[in-house]
Amino acid sequence: MIVVLSTFSFLLAYISILTISAFGGMFSEKSGTLALSLEGSMTFGAFAAGVAMHLLPATLPDALSALIVILIALISAGLFSLLLALACVTFKANQTLVGTALNILSTAIAVVLIKHITRTETLPVGNSRLNFTRFYEIFNVDMFGIQGVKFNWLILIVLVLVPIVYLLIYKTQYGLRLSACGENPSSADSLGINVNRTRYTGIVLSGLFAGLGGLLLITMNAEWEFANGANGFGYLALAVLIFGQWKPLYIFLGAFIFSIFKTLSVVYPSIDILANLGISSYFYLALPYVVCLVVLIFTSKKNAGPKTLGEPYDKGKIS
């Protein structure tokens, strides 16, 4: 029973991480900017939150500390994503290049500063691992009151956000403008929409969402190795985004499918049938990526992405 429930808890957590991060990517890409730096934004949000969790005094009430940590994760990742906006929207830089640079940068900053924080008298350069057991206890509650099965309540925030994001994209003026800036920026411009400003908001929203995803990811554990960044979740979220054809509900479905395989790689040793097969753990680790690739083969033929994805908006250019 506990195995089933903890599998379920992992599954829920992975669905939420991938959904929220892919939503983030969607805001950026719908407005026309490639969200390759999703991994970097997740790492940066997680890093800032991790440092906050390390430094916040234990005397602070739990609820207040949790609120502070969530806000720090959101704000820092949002600010970090401004770097993407500045380069790609204002300075029309190559978006793949900048995305790659930001992914390296956020991990490097996290590692350098965490090594600085964790150093001691005997250890002049610390390690890049942070422990936050207190916050693990705060963010995770016993699922259905059963001991040993943890449930991260940040997941609830994500589940609430799913319908909100759906409405935001399809039913509000802002959502439609966002899509317009990605599909046909010149027309949007001619109707008085400030394309670059809209793209900025899309990118910052993507940072906020990725920050929450990063926080959820690291608080699934009591400690995190920051040298691994967000452990590839940002890239998986990007694949989920493409699989979900940039549509909120499909993204949620895609996140569900990938999470099944991601969960499998964690829980397979405790499932007797799978453990007895004697297949290498690396097989299960690679499985989500293989599935992802296969799914992309079937979904990429019809190019459903925003029309001007990856192109900076140039007023003088006739499209």
Binding site: L83, A93, V98, A101, I104, L105, V112, K115, V125, S128
Partner: peptide, 27 residues
């Protein structure tokens, strides 16, 4: 520079900032 209490990833920060900036080159 590890003996000085710096982590070697400082070099990584420098290179990634450099690539980030090289995105501005065309502009």
């Amino acid at each position: 520079i590890t003996d000085l209490g710096f982590s070697p990833e400082v070099a990584s920060i420098m290179t990634s900032v450099i690539i980030y900036l090289s995105g501005f080159v065309v502009f």
